[in-house]
């Protein structure tokens, strides 16, 4: 499709608002057809969708702030002083119940 026709189907703003449902695969069929026709003719919305997908797939950022090495040790020390954790190696004690 060329020229302005794809914008008659849906304006760019509307197509961008459909992107959430598109990724959730919740677009109704008729809407989905218009959505794709618009994308076929609109490089700006294709670029937008590319970035939107990247933004929605952000599991790589989970480890963005790894804890410093000493942090776990100091947290466990703190909790041990509070009587909340037991960090000693004592496999026998696992059998205890009191």
């Amino acid at each position: 499709m060329s020229g302005w026709f794809y914008k008659v189907l849906y304006p760019c703003d509307k197509v961008r608002d459909f992107m959430y449902d598109y990724l959730e695969e919740k677009l109704p069929t008729a809407t989905s057809i218009r959505f794709h026709l618009h994308l076929n003719g609109c490089p700006e919305c294709r670029a937008y969708l590319f970035l939107y997908k990247k933004a929605a797939d952000a599991k790589a950022f989970r480890k963005e702030y790894p804890a410093p090495d000493a942090f776990l040790a100091s947290t466990l020390d703190f909790l041990e002083k509070e009587g909340i954790v037991e960090t000693g190696d004592d496999p026998q004690a696992d059998q205890e119940s009191w």
């Binding site: 702030y65 776990l72 909790l79 954790v85 037991e86 960090t87 119940s97």
Partner: peptide, 20 residues
Amino acid sequence: PSGQRAFARMVQGTHDRFLG
């Protein structure tokens, strides 16, 4: 001690994610 050790393992397994 059994519960305390489980708590320590929970801390060890979760601190990175929660801290992030």
